[in-house]
Simulated scan of single mutants.
Amino acid sequence: MQPDDDGLAPVIPLFGAAGSARSSTDPAATGGPRAGVRFDDAAESDESASEEPDAESLRRGAEEILVRKLRAKQLSLAEARTVLRGTELDRDLVEDVLDEFCRRGYLDDRTLASLLVTSGTERKGQGRVALARSLSQRGIPREIVDEALGELPDDDAERALEFARSKASGMSRLDWDTALRRLHGQLARRGYGGSVAMDAARTALREAGVGRTGVRPASGVRFVDSD
């Protein structure tokens, strides 16, 4: 039901039109109790004002809220449950709505997980660790996360090197140690760890022409990185 234009409930008069011509003996004119309102009228008015919407109305309202959220962003089942629990629906109705949205295909954790993995690898250059963390933060169950990651080819090293190459070109003014530390940190934050991150960083920096400043000891012999 849409509210009135001014957002206010309609006013229900308690008196007839003749109420404005009361005599001085009328309790309303003399400041009598309730200004002439009968107690049974007041009780009926209070009961009507406090009447709660039925379960079907609550459900429709909650569904509309969830649909608006889904139009803005695809949600996991856990995220949708959180949205519905912020409404007046009881737990049973919340699960009924979620089941209906899953049946219609509006909610699908497996599809969402696959999309997040694709986006994470192709647009963000993320590795498996970062991808698993991202999906878990969205409330996607562990078994679905594992399924989605299992579809990836085992080429973390290749993806790490591709990401490192995209960043190394902007580090040509840095010395080797600083560039290596920064690039390794960027790779680690995207879920590439250990030797995969270090090897990718070293390779990308060498390809970009970033050189380590040689160390010249007192003997005058200059050591240059042989990597």
Rank of each mutant, 00 (worst) to 15 (best):
P217Q: 11
A21M: 14
S57M: 10
K167Y: 06
S226F: 11
A17S: 13
Y192Q: 03
P10F: 01
D92T: 14
L66Y: 09
L135Q: 02
E52A: 05
G139T: 03
G7M: 02
E122M: 08
L98S: 04
G7W: 03
A168I: 05
L66C: 01
V210R: 05
T30W: 14
V97E: 01
E56N: 09
L149E: 06
G185S: 08
E63C: 00
Q2C: 07
P27T: 07
A55W: 05
K69W: 07
G139E: 02
R165E: 06
R104Q: 14
I65R: 07
A43E: 12
D54K: 12
D154E: 14
E44L: 00
Q2W: 03
E51K: 10
L187K: 01
A43W: 03
V210W: 01
L58S: 01
D109Q: 00
D41C: 05
T82V: 15
L135C: 03
L205R: 07
G32Q: 11
G170A: 08
Q74W: 08
A55M: 10
E162P: 00
R128E: 09
A157S: 14
T82W: 00
A132C: 04
S119N: 13
R59H: 07
R173F: 10
K167T: 06
E122S: 12
A21V: 12
A160I: 05
G36R: 01
D26N: 08
R133K: 13
G185C: 00
R142D: 09
S219E: 13
A21L: 15
A78P: 00
T121R: 09
S166W: 01
I12W: 02
S50P: 04
A168V: 00
I12H: 02
R212K: 12
A197I: 01
L131Q: 07
D156N: 09
P3V: 02
R142K: 07
